[in-house]
Each structure stands twice: as structure tokens, then as C-alpha cells.
Design a protein around this nucleic acid. Structure first.
Lengths: 120, 120
DNA sequence: CTCTTTTTTGCAAATCTTTCACAACTTCCC
DNA sequence: GGGAAGTTGTGAAAGATTTGCAAAAAAGAG
């Protein structure tokens, strides 16, 4: 039985590890076990790259010589369940693995095109 | 004034652990012994997942290697006796167990502003 | 024996996981 | 730029597992 009430949370997304639940913008989303384990592995290292091999080992128990696409499929489903933020949250590090990025507010005045605020 | 030591209660359903009785919308429902024990195990952990293994152990005294469908059968009878709310109250956590959900589950987020920070 | 309660049995149905085939993409090199 | 090679994205379908359920057998109680 689980006991620690640990959860990840930022302004759009919350993960409760004891209830095995995810909320996206206050809307409850149910996760399957593998989805939950994968999300857990990612959020518990939020901001850091988690190599594919590590995920395949910790979530699936696979050895380093197993060829499978199930990780990609689960990543896709997680991204969907994260709503419109999926791509923003789960970043692909090509050739290495994935990284769960905590929510970052929209970039300030970067290389944005000219925005004029009309004053009536 | 008579007092019941332990009882679960929400707006539709009440369980008295000392009297071993259940009321659904003010209407008394008789439970058999096993039904009561199972409901008790669930409501006393209301809102939390109770794994199948735990139920089989605490209610039936079964070990971890027993294969039976009697738990499912009892869950079904309980759901029936909970009237139209059966499905709402007793939630199936696929591959894990069951969870008794208090009526209109409490929201994990605060109503208005929501910046809670959790410990890891 | 009769009635109630509990468990088992055997599928059916629902759910979750993995694979597959191929499209899309990244990187590297010429 | 234009491949080539390797990596990732994706929808659909197969595979595997779990749960729901009805009916009947088994177990108790009076």
C-alpha cells in the first residue's frame, strides 16, 4: 500500500502518485498503469533528460538489447492525455530519450513579430 | 443521545460500522456479513485505492496466490445494493483494485487561486 | 429439508499493452 | 541541396490480461 502523498504540480498539470491520477487544467484524467509509471519516471526527473534505455529498464524491465516501439506509443498517449500541452511538456531528445519540462509561461518579448496595441 | 462511534456518511449513503448497517437515501439496506465486511474495508479507506490483494487478505484471509472471482461477485452485489449509485461509488481501478468514492469527489485543486507546492 | 449466503465455473465484455507498417523527421556526409 | 541511414510519430490491429456477469454448485443455519 502506498503512503507518501507525493505529487507533481505546476500551473496546468498535477500528478498524484498515491491516487494514480492526473489533472490537466482541473480536469481529472485517468492513467493506465504503464502510463502512470512512465509519467512518474519522467516527472520525478522533471527538467532532466531520461534516456530511453533507462525508461525501458525502469518501467518495462527490459534489457539493453530489446527492440520495441512500445515506449514511443506510450509517450504519444501521455502527450494526448496532457491535452494541448503534450508537446510542450514531454520533449523529445533525439537519439537520447525524453524530458519532462515543467510548465514555462509563454516567452516574453522574444523574436516575436511586431505587436501593436491599439489605443482607442 | 445515542452515538455511533464510527460511521461513514455522505449525502446519499451512510454506513454504520458498529451496527453493521447501510442506508441509501434514508432507506435501510440489509447486508450479508461478507458484503458488509467488504463495504467496510472500502468505505474506511474512502477515496483511496484498495488493491485486490488487500481485500482478499483482509476480508477473506486469502493468501497472495489464490485465484478466485468471489471478490468480483461481491462487488457486483454491493453495487446493486447501492442503488443507482453503485457504479459511481465503487470505482474499478483496472489491474489494481477498487476505490470507494465519496459522493461528488472532492476536488484536488483549491476553488479559486491554485498555487500549492507539494513536497517530493 | 428449506432457505440464505458464499464460492466456483465458464464465458463474454471491457481494458490495457504491444506489435506492425509506414510516414515523418533528424543527423551526417558529399 | 540531396541522399542515406537511423530515429521517432502514428493509426490500426493483434495480443494479452482483467473484470463483469449469470447460473449453478457448495456451504451454513435453523
Amino acid at each position: 500500500m502506498m503512503m507518501s502523498n507525493s505529487l507533481y504540480q505546476d500551473s496546468h498539470c498535477a500528478v498524484d502518485f498515491t491516487l494514480a491520477k492526473l489533472w490537466v487544467d482541473r480536469r481529472a484524467v485517468t492513467l493506465t498503469r504503464k502510463e502512470y509509471e512512465l509519467l512518474s519516471a519522467l516527472t520525478s526527473n522533471a527538467g532532466e533528460i531520461v534516456p530511453r534505455g533507462v525508461l525501458l529498464r525502469t518501467v518495462w524491465g527490459y534489457g539493453p538489447d530489446i527492440r520495441t516501439r512500445t515506449l514511443d506509443v506510450h509517450i504519444r498517449r501521455l502527450r494526448r492525455k496532457l491535452g494541448g500541452y503534450g508537446e510542450q511538456y514531454i520533449e523529445t531528445i533525439f537519439g537520447v530519450g525524453y524530458r519532462f519540462q515543467p510548465w514555462r509561461e509563454p516567452k516574453p518579448f522574444a523574436a516575436e513579430p511586431h505587436v501593436l496595441r491599439a489605443s482607442a
